[in-house]
């Protein structure tokens, strides 16, 4: 079971934050196929948010084929997002760490590193689409 949280300053609507947290947990292997999501009542009672926000998030996840609702029982994860790529996380993280150390040695501060990463990420993502 995962626990949702909301970030007031993220600029994302609460419903999208819930959707992303489920996807993220699936990618990280915190949620696996067959796991149950918290009930709507539980989420509402914990976060003090509108019930329709939770319903909408769960419907969206259902629409994406990631979860399935079993009437009267609950909502369950019905897909997997890690698909073997989880095994690659370790080595990739190590490479990234080495790269970060290199960037710091070159004199980049946190903000410059983030900016460099983001612009590179965006341009390469853009090239792949084009």
């Amino acid at each position: 079971m995962i626990e949702f949280h909301l970030d007031e300053r993220s600029g994302l609507s609460p419903y999208l934050q819930l959707v992303r947290q489920v996807r993220q947990a699936m990618r990280l292997g915190l949620l696996r196929e067959g796991d149950q999501l918290p009930t709507v009542k539980d989420v509402v009672a914990r976060l003090a948010i509108n019930p329709n926000t939770v319903l909408k998030a769960y419907r969206e996840l259902e629409h994406e084929g990631l979860v399935a609702a079993r009437p009267g029982v609950g909502t369950f994860v019905s897909a997997t997002l890690t698909d073997g790529s989880l095994a690659a996380h370790g080595p990739l993280r190590q490479e990234l760490r080495r790269w970060l150390a290199k960037a710091r040695r070159a004199g980049l501060d946190e903000e410059s590193i983030e900016a460099l990463f983001l612009t590179t990420f965006r341009t390469s993502a853009g090239e792949e689409i084009a």
Partner: peptide
């Protein structure tokens, strides 16, 4: 406030 809203919304679902 938070606890009150939690209770209210939980009841709204239930």
């Amino acid at each position: 406030r938070r606890e009150f809203m939690q209770g209210l919304l939980e009841a709204a679902v239930e």
